[in-house]
Design a protein around this nucleic acid. Structure first.
Length: 479
RNA sequence: GCCGGGGUGGCCGAACGGUUCAGGCGGCUGCCUGCAGAGCAGCUAUAUGUGGGUUCAACUCCCACCCCCGGCUCCA
């Protein structure tokens, strides 16, 4: 819209502080977000993080930045444990579905973007696959090897974390502390030949007793890359050695991002990104425990099957700050759905009465500024939503036109399709149209019993009819 | 065990020392309506895990305790 004077503040995990965002290159933001491992459907917990990242991107763009957004697709299977006995998620997925790992990767990557689209998550500028960058990874590992950061043991090439100063700074712990922590909490087997518990695999050799579907030749032997290397390599390839923002889920702090930083620092002498942002988890309320223990995951499709608009989930995510855990229950999703529907009705109503000038009154500017202030304050979406409701319900100093325009501006960040009801393409089934006609006849004849009966009938079909001074109006109600 | 984050009204959640707890949902009343819905006007709820402390002032800072959640090389 215009270049605002407000600064953007973001909480940086690296410094544990809220910091003013200063891009490396004026007017541009280069950001990397860790993407999904495509061996199964992404669940709504995963998507909470992708929604957070999408909001971040939209806020940056709202502020006039040109954002280059890179996301990886992890299509190389990594072991579920660090020992040779560990299974490979991709290969397990392939066996389960009797497909090749490549087919599995394609299938779930496609599903991932389908669901993303349903949630109005913008597609990253660049989507890159691990398997397309094996050569780059090998080259990078060689670089680390030349610099003396690696060693080889029976099952792979490892990164020696002791060689690096400040290993683990993202976690707020020092090297010794991290190693002790790992030792105390180790739930997973690890290779006893590792020099330090924090050391991680850069290149893993294929098991000798069986053939993997995904394996590649390398200077060290046939095998496959470690998990952390792909993000470091692809990030550098598409965004340069030094970029602005790196984000992911909070679970990535202690291991994945810590190791990404280690690799990059070993290669270039500094962390790859200036700002590290992490989204908190979606957790499940008491009523959800059962489903979780039964090993079921809730996907975007699941919530659609339950009759919800996928964007109701996006709304729900916006009601909490991204660094707070959010409790998911079906009740809270319903609450979000109701709020979203009401908001859209307000917008529709405004659109039908767009009187008023398009001029930007001081009040208009005030709301715009307040909105900007909220979203630029470490993405305070709950505050931005609260402002939206105040605008919609209480503000009398603005014309409908101005309100509508403001809401459309806000929706560039919310991405809740607030104008969905304005020009609706939806068509009623012919039988429903017939029923509505019949009901109108009954109402004209003041046969209220018949009219109410038909209304109930339509309701059962998911169609809500409302009588207004302008005549009958209908809408399709999800759930 | 260690690390991290929390405990706010019926529910979800803001609040980062200071006008009445933002806002949403739910519920209630009135207007409107044949009724309902939507909308509008208004209301709701002794809130801040417990016990201390600092301060003119604490949800917000400090101490102790209780409880919960997440992580600890699969993980958003």
């Amino acid at each position: 819209m215009r270049n605002p004077k407000g600064d953007i503040y973001l909480f940086n995990t690296l410094t544990r502080k809220r910091e003013k965002f200063v891009p490396i290159e004026k007017g541009k933001v280069r950001m990397y977000c860790c993407g999904p491992t495509v061996y199964w459907y992404a669940h709504i917990g995963n998507f909470r993080t992708y929604i957070f990242e999408d909001v971040l991107r939209r806020v940056l763009e709202f502020n006039g930045f040109e954002v280059k957004h890179v996301m990886n697709i992890t299509d190389v299977g990594h072991l579920t444990s660090d020992a040779d006995t560990g299974e490979d998620k991709m290969e397990v997925g392939a066996q389960r579905e009797r497909k090749t790992v490549w087919e599995i990767a394609d299938f779930y990557a496609e599903k991932f973007f389908e669901d993303s689209e349903r949630l109005n998550i913008l597609r990253p500028t660049i989507v890159c696959r691990a398997t397309d960058h094996i050569a780059d990874m090998i080259e990078f590992i060689r670089k680390l090897e030349e610099k003396g950061y690696t060693y080889i043991i029976d099952d792979g090439v490892y990164f020696d974390t002791l060689k690096l100063k400040n290993y683990g700074k993202l976690t707020g712990m020092n090297f010794e502390r991290l190693n002790e922590t790992l030792k105390a909490g180790a739930r997973v087997e690890y290779n006893p030949n590792k020099r330090n518990l924090t050391d991680f695999c850069l290149w893993r050799f294929s098991p000798k007793d069986r053939k993997r579907q995904m394996e590649w030749d390398s200077p060290w032997g046939v095998g496959f890359p470690g998990w952390h290397i792909e993000c470091t390599v692809m990030g550098m390839k598409y965004l340069g050695e030094h970029f602005d923002i790196h984000c992911g889920g909070i679970d990535h702090i202690p291991i994945h991002h810590t190791n990404e930083i280690a690799q990059a620092e070993a290669a270039t002498g500094r962390p790859p990104a200036n700002y590290w942002l992490h989204g908190a988890f979606l957790v499940f309320g008491k009523s959800m425990k059962m489903a979780k223990s039964a090993g079921e995951i809730i996907t975007v499709q699941t919530i659609m099957d339950e009759g919800f608009d996928p964007l109701a989930f996006r709304y729900l995510c916006l009601t909490a700050h991204y660094r707070s855990e959010l409790v998911f229950t079906w009740e809270s999703l319903q609450s979000a759905q109701n709020a979203l529907s009401t908001l859209r009705e307000h917008v529709r109503s405004l659109a039908e009465n767009l009187e008023g000038s398009v001029s930007r009154s001081p009040k208009f500017e005030e709301y715009y500024e307040k909105f900007l202030e909220a979203v630029n304050d470490d993405l305070n979406m709950p505050k931005a939503l609260a402002l939206t409701w105040v605008l919609v319900r209480e503000e009398k100093m603005l014309t409908n036109r101005e309100k509508y325009d403001l809401l459309m501006e806000f929706d560039k960040v919310f991405a809740l399709d607030l104008a969905r009801n304005v020009q609706r393409e939806e068509k009623l089934p012919p039988e429903a149209e017939e029923l509505i006609r019949k009901r109108e006849d009954a109402r004209k004849a003041k046969d209220w019993t018949a009219a109410d009966k038909i209304r109930e009938q339509l309701r059962a079909m998911g169609i809500i009819v409302e009588d207004t001074p302008q005549g009958v109006r209908w809408r399709i109600e999800k759930r």
